[in-house]
Simulated assay, not measured.
Amino acid sequence: MPPSSPSPAPTTRVMSGGMSRGAFWLMLRRLALFAASAELVYLAVFLALGMPAMALACAVGSATYVVAYVLMGLRWNHTAVVLMWAEVLTQAGVCTVLLGWASGGHYFLLVFLPAVAVSRSPRRALAALIFLLAAYLCLDVLAHRAAPAYALSPASLTTLRWLSIVVVFGMFTYTARFYTRRVQDAEEQLYDMATTDSLTGLWNRRQFLQLTHAEIDRARRHGTPLALVLADIDHFKLVNDQHGHDTGDQVIRHVAGLMRGQARGGDLMGRWGGEEFVALLPMTDGTGALEWSERVRSRVEQTPCRPDGQAVEVTLSLGVCELLAGQTLDHAFKNADAALYAAKNAGRNRVCVAPAALPAQPPAAEVHRQAAAAPGDPRPAPSIAG
């Protein structure tokens, strides 16, 4: 079933790389916290190795990332990015020069690659990639031509390198999951926009028809009944004229919600257009569809719409058609539409059934309801057309 309320329209501009601005800065802000935490881990490791100068550098790096996090919260995004670039380049250079290539400090340059890949400007992205590649190659040449300033044991170098690998893997995993989740969210939003009516959240006409064809095939395979219902809000133009189009929209949402409230798990509900709705009821014959439609009609009649606290009385006319063996969907819609017009012509606020779905005798519920109508009731009891 479609969602109970229409999906909100996207409010952020989409970047050329496929991420919205807000999503990109949210990801970068979280990465800043991740990096600040990683720097504290490095600080502890360097203190354990008896390298207070490197530990101090890590403390400064952690503080830098925290500042960048705060700046992004204040929307000083570009200043924050400059700080993060400067910190990563400095950290990678210091670790590579002082500790050697085997320390793994150069891996941190790779962290920029996902962020660069979703840059809004292809030229800036290309320039950043060339800069990163040049910096990486320079560090490689420098590390292999000059001996490291600190002569660490192989075990210490292995510890630092593995720590670098773990941190970089963690950042790449986070960014990959973040991108994947955003793509999934975008796909779901596009699906909702393509298949549901934005005002009511019901299926739109095209999606309803696609799902209906599948239900018809299923009903014919299993030999089960299937019914189609068309519904139209009575005197809707008068509602718009007297109360305005905003109230008219609220009335449409109101009726859609009431109809959805009567739907079972497998029922299909759609907005056919304007103030008209459509429902497909699997495992339901003409009698069952009549009873269902009467419940909907009664519910709408007894539940006024209250926009801004003002009661707006609403009624609904419905046309019912059972899909018989060999009957096409177009034929069923014509029959349901004819039944709907019969309900309108008979005075509105009633349910009529197409002749093809008319039972031999009125259903017990209908007979009981007509008999229970109070004498002198100015509203005629709903009838079965045909």
Rank of each mutant, 00 (worst) to 15 (best):
P362Q: 05
G201T: 07
H235C: 06
T315W: 00
V314N: 02
R145C: 10
V251T: 04
A38G: 10
G319I: 06
N77Q: 12
Q327C: 04
R145K: 04
G319P: 01
V166Q: 11
V116G: 05
Y150P: 00
L160A: 03
P380V: 03
M27V: 11
V166T: 11
G319S: 09
C321K: 08
A332T: 02
T284N: 08
R218D: 01
A263D: 04
A59S: 11
A343I: 08
D217A: 14
Q242Y: 06
R182Q: 15
R29G: 11
A263G: 09
S383F: 10
S198H: 15
R297S: 02
G223A: 09
V45W: 02
P114E: 01
N345T: 06
C321I: 02
G309Y: 11
A9K: 07
V353E: 08
A48H: 12
A53W: 13
D308P: 00
D330I: 10
F333P: 00
R120Q: 15
C352G: 13
V118C: 06
A311H: 06
E215F: 13
G261F: 13
V45P: 00
Q310L: 12
C352H: 14
V166H: 09
S119H: 15
D234R: 08
G22C: 04
A151F: 05
H213D: 10
G270I: 10
R205E: 02
S16Q: 12
G93P: 00
P225R: 11
Y179H: 13
Y69H: 15
R206N: 04
E276S: 04
D234W: 05
L190Y: 07
A128I: 04
L132T: 05
V118M: 07
Q327K: 10
L110Y: 13
H331L: 09
F236D: 00
P363H: 15
R13I: 13
K344G: 05
L152N: 02
D246Q: 14
C305T: 09
G386I: 03
F172V: 01
A332L: 03
R260P: 01
T196C: 07
A289D: 00
T96L: 09
H331I: 04
I384E: 03
Y341N: 03
D185G: 05
S7G: 06
A149H: 11
I384K: 10
A256K: 06
A36F: 11
